[in-house]
Every structure is written in C-alpha cells, then in structure tokens.
C-alpha cells in the first residue's frame, strides 16, 4: 500500500467530523451533502441561505489550501463525458432515492448507529467496490 496516507487521512477525517459536529450542536442539522444540495432544488425559499453558505464553504476550502500552500490541489479524472454524465445521474438519483451519501449516511448516520445508514453505507461501498472491480479488472 504505497499510496497509504494515514496521518493526512486522520486529520482530514477529524475536520470532516468537526464540521458535522458544529452543524449538529450549533444548528441542529445533519451535514449530509446530498441532502443539503438536493433540497436547493426544492422551492422552500426560507431554507436556502444556510444551504448555499455550506456549499460556498465547501468550494472555498480547496482554494484556501492552494493559496496557503502555493501548490495546486491535484485532482485526477480520466473518465470521458459519457461516463461522467452516467455516474453523475446515478449519484444524484441514487442519493435522492436512498436519502443520503457518504457524509449523511456514512458519517452522520453511522455515528448515531442508525440501522438505515449502516445498511446504506455497506451497500454503496460494496456497489462501488464491485463497479471498480468490473471497470479495472474485468473490462479494463
């Protein structure tokens, strides 16, 4: 596992946990990204401000890191447009149907031992691993 980065993983994970903890303890909200974004598509006007602010914070963060370290944040994607669009549709539809993603089910749900979130996380991790297996070791 020469790609294994345990320290940055633990620090980054703790920051994600801290972000979710602040949302819960200060605002009483779940920091589930698919839920926060998905509800922006609904016409509940009074509810938009904090959702947009959360999204703005998400977008600003890597720019802050680039500015502070003076190095570009590297993102590697080699998928073509058809795969990107298919994946985006599946992620959007799937997280709406399944009421959550990696943050909502994986972090916020599992930490309060929600049976729905534990099952959802097992299912999407297994489906993700199966898909990568097929893409890299069967088709690829």
């Amino acid at each position: 596992m020469h790609n294994f980065t345990p320290y940055s993983a633990l620090i980054g994970g703790a920051l994600i946990g801290l972000a979710a903890a602040l949302m819960l303890l200060l605002s009483g909200r779940i920091a589930g990204v698919s839920g926060i974004v998905g509800s922006l598509l609904r016409p509940a006007w009074g509810d938009w401000g904090w959702r947009l602010a959360f999204v703005a914070g998400l977008v600003v963060a890597p720019l802050l890191v680039q500015w502070a370290t003076d190095k570009p944040v590297s993102i590697n994607i080699d998928s073509n447009l058809a795969v990107l669009v298919s994946a985006g549709l599946l992620v959007g539809f799937g997280t709406s149907l399944g009421s959550g993603c990696t943050s909502g089910h994986g972090v916020c749900g599992i930490s309060r031992l929600s049976p729905r979130s534990i099952l959802a996380t097992v299912v999407f991790m297994a489906a993700g691993a199966a898909t990568v297996y097929v893409m890299r070791h069967v088709v690829g």
């Binding site: 974004v37 994946a87 992620v91 943050s103 959802a120 893409m135």
Partner: peptide, 26 residues
C-alpha cells in the same frame, strides 16, 4: 428505496470516484 438508492449511488461512485461532497468542493 433505501437499498436500491444506495446501490445506484455506489455504482455511480465507483464509475468515476466522485460522491457529492468532493465533486462540489472541487
């Protein structure tokens, strides 16, 4: 719906490696 939704999400996640948080953050 919970199980089916999670499965569809997982397939999409595995295709590119993007889930909602990182995709929007970048």
């Amino acid at each position: 719906r919970l199980v089916g939704g999670a499965a569809l999400f997982g397939i999409g996640w595995g295709l590119v490696g993007l889930c909602p948080g990182p995709a929007i953050s970048g």
